[in-house]
C-alpha cells in the first residue's frame, strides 16, 4: 500500500557500475574493516588451540609439548595482536550498540567503551593473578 510512480524511465539506458573486486583497497576504513573481519579467523584458531590444550589436560607431557611446539608458538604470536586488534575495534564500536539514556542525554560513548576496556583489564588482571599464583602453588 504505497504510492505508485508515474515515471516511465527504464533502467535499460542507465549506467550500472560494477563494484570493483578490490573495493576494500580503495579506502583505509574499508581495509581496516576487512582486517577486523579477518581477525576472527585467528581468534577462532586460537579457540581451537585452547580446546586442543583442554583435551590434553590429563596428559601433562602432551599438553606441554603442544604448548611448546613451534607451530603453536607462532600461532600465539600471531593470534595475540590479532585478538587485540579484534577486541579494540569492537570495543570502540560498543557505544553504537549500547546506548544508555540519562533523561535527554546519552551517556557519552567514551564511558561505554571505557567500561568495556576497564572490564577487559580487570578480567585480564584477574587471570594473570590466578595464573601467577597458580604457578607458585604448582
Amino acid at each position: 500500500m504505497t504510492n505508485r510512480t508515474g515515471n516511465t524511465t527504464t533502467t535499460e539506458r542507465q549506467l550500472i557500475r560494477k563494484m570493483p573486486a578490490n573495493w576494500w583497497l580503495k579506502k583505509p576504513a574499508y581495509l581496516r574493516y576487512m582486517i577486523r573481519e579477518m581477525t576472527c579467523l585467528f581468534v577462532g584458531g586460537y579457540a581451537m588451540f585452547l580446546l586442543m590444550l583442554a583435551a590434553r589436560l590429563d596428559k601433562p607431557e602432551a599438553f606441554a609439548d603442544l604448548l611448546a611446539s613451534p607451530l603453536a608458538i607462532a600461532l600465539q604470536w600471531i593470534a595475540l595482536p590479532m585478538a587485540i586488534y579484534h577486541s579494540v575495534t569492537w570495543f570502540n564500536l560498543t557505544p553504537k550498540v549500547l546506548v544508555i539514556w540519562r533523561g535527554e542525554d546519552k551517556l557519552p560513548g567514551f564511558l561505554i567503551a571505557g567500561a568495556h576496556y576497564a572490564g577487559w583489564l580487570a578480567v585480564s588482571a584477574g587471570l594473570i593473578y590466578f595464573a601467577m599464583s597458580g604457578g607458585t602453588d604448582g
Binding site: Y33, L93, K96
Partner: peptide
C-alpha cells in the same frame, strides 16, 4: 549489514545509521 560503519562516518547530519542498525539487531 556487516557493520562496516562507514555510513555513519559520511552522514552529514550525524544520524548514525550504523548505530540504529546494530541497536535494531539487539
Amino acid at each position: 549489514c556487516t557493520f562496516v560503519g562507514e555510513c555513519s562516518e559520511v552522514c552529514p547530519k550525524n544520524v548514525d545509521p550504523a548505530g540504529a542498525i546494530q541497536m535494531a539487531k539487539v
